[in-house]
């Protein structure tokens, strides 16, 4: 019983955060709303027994992804039309799409048969057991994920190099123009 209440509270929290993202103007505030949503989700994961996942949600998603986004927001402090006008030209169509998709999903959910829950032991997702299973059966995917991260790192470095080269050329061009 308390589970349901707990879940309802944090679900509500996640939804509030998501809806708030719609109406906030400043990207920084939007980011904070998203962080709120993510934290609520982490609480929900913890309630479901996935403690490891909850921790990683906070560590990776909030701690890395959103922080990076906030860096980007701070760097690109642009105050043009994209700042003053919140909504695009497809607002009405977007809202109609919202209702449509929500309707379809809820309809599908209501029609669906109840899901049979398998008997679960509490300890399955404890960090010790989980880590053993993770490294034992799924180590290939772990390695592949590492490769993916390596590639992403290289790609990011390449992108940064281009930016720096471009910046240098632009700078020297400006100097020549002035001199």
């Amino acid at each position: 019983m308390i589970e349901t209440v707990f879940l309802m509270i944090f679900s509500f929290g996640a939804l509030i955060g998501a809806v708030a993202m719609f109406f906030l103007r400043h990207p920084m505030r939007v980011a904070l709303a998203l962080i709120g949503t993510m934290l609520s989700l982490a609480a929900i994961y913890a309630e479901l027994g996935l403690h490891v996942i909850a921790v990683f949600q906070v560590l990776i998603y909030v701690g890395a992804v959103m922080v990076f986004m906030i860096y980007a927001i701070m760097l690109l402090d642009v105050r043009d039309r994209s700042f003053t006008e919140r909504f695009s030209s497809l607002l009405v169509a977007g809202l109609a799409g919202l209702l449509l998709l929500l309707g379809v999903l809820v309809d599908g959910l209501l029609r669906a048969e109840p899901i049979a829950a398998a008997p679960v032991t509490e300890d399955v997702f404890r960090i010790g057991a989980f880590a053993i299973v993770f490294m034992d059966e799924f180590w290939v995917y772990f390695a592949l994920a590492a490769v993916l991260l390596l590639v992403a790192e290289i790609a990011a470095s390449a992108v940064i190099d281009v930016r720096r080269r471009g910046a240098d050329a632009a700078a020297s061009g400006k100097e020549r123009g002035r001199g």
Binding site: L90, A93, G97, L100, L101, V104
Partner: peptide
């Protein structure tokens, strides 16, 4: 928007 519509 087209993605959404297609998904629906």
């Amino acid at each position: 928007w087209m993605t959404l519509f297609g998904l629906v």
